[in-house]
């Protein structure tokens, strides 16, 4: 028996009036890793960005339907989007640390949410860097510019930064696609570690990665008219071994995409 933390109901997103994803219904279980897979252009990232209302930032985007977070629709006008994003963090495809010190990167989130006390900030920075398995590598150079870190370290810093606002969910948009295999492995290990406290939704184009790390898998596909739809959702093992839908099977076995 799994508890749901996030739920999409009849979710449709339009860009410039054209649907990019249509009628997506999805329930994401708490403290599990859910992977969203599918060929490029199928709307994986668009769907992911609905969960923390990042689509609000694209002027031409319009969202219809509901996204329930802990049962509350985050698309109603009385919801505070700042609070939504604090509790649903995000890690991006390319590591995007702020061009500031390692410390300031992690401290930025807590600061804007009102943490002023220096000792409290120190404590948060250490806790998050430890949680992101980066502490030992950077503890002696916390005030060094984050851009001096390697790509893999930068991405783990971005994870630490996202953890610092004490989110419940982490959305990851192909977090390892720009990293080498060893850095990727570290990120994957870290993700497994994080599921003790956090729910993770990861978009990936890498099927092996989805199979390796996720508990549940969503398969999406865009048809001829380039509108993304959810084809199948289930436990990862089932999706990869006994897919119910023919299209899922074709994709998993590499027949297209």
């Amino acid at each position: 028996m799994e508890e749901i933390i996030l739920e999409a109901q009849n979710l449709t997103v339009y860009y410039d009036g054209r649907p990019a994803i249509e009628e997506v219904n999805l329930r994401i279980p708490r403290r599990r890793i859910t992977a969203i897979i599918g060929p490029s252009g199928c709307g994986k990232s668009t769907l992911l960005r609905c969960f923390n209302r990042m689509n609000d930032l694209i002027p031409s985007a319009r969202v219809e339907g509901k996204v329930l977070f802990e049962g509350v629709n985050i698309y109603t006008p009385d919801v505070d989007v700042v609070e939504v994003r604090r509790r649903i963090g995000m890690v991006f495809q390319k590591p995007n640390p702020f061009p500031k010190s390692i410390y300031e990167n992690v401290a930025f989130g807590p600061r804007i949410h009102g943490v002023r006390d220096r000792r409290k900030l120190d404590e948060i920075v250490e806790r998050c860097l430890r949680a992101a398995a980066l502490w030992d590598e950077v503890k002696d150079k916390l005030h060094q510019n984050a851009l001096t870190l390697s790509g893999g370290q930068q991405q783990r810093l971005c994870i630490a930064r996202a953890l610092a606002t004490e989110p419940e969910v982490l959305l990851m948009d192909e977090p390892a696609s720009s990293l080498d295999p060893i850095a990727t492995m570290k990120i994957e290990d870290l993700m497994r570690e994080l599921t003790r406290e956090y729910t993770i939704v990861i978009v990936t184009h890498n099927m092996q990665q989805a199979a390796r790390v996720s508990d549940y898998t969503v398969f999406m596909l865009a048809g001829e008219e380039r509108v993304g739809r959810l084809i199948e959702f289930g436990p990862t093992q089932q999706i990869f071994t006994r897919p119910r839908d023919r299209r899922t099977e074709d994709y998993i076995t590499g027949r297209f995409g």
């Binding site: 994003r85 963090g89 804007i112 610092a164």
Partner: peptide
């Protein structure tokens, strides 16, 4: 870079922040 703004927004920062 746009990615810098996205990183800020994703942490719940307001536009001015």
């Amino acid at each position: 870079p746009m990615s810098l703004r996205e990183a800020g927004f994703a942490l719940g920062a307001t536009r001015w922040q």
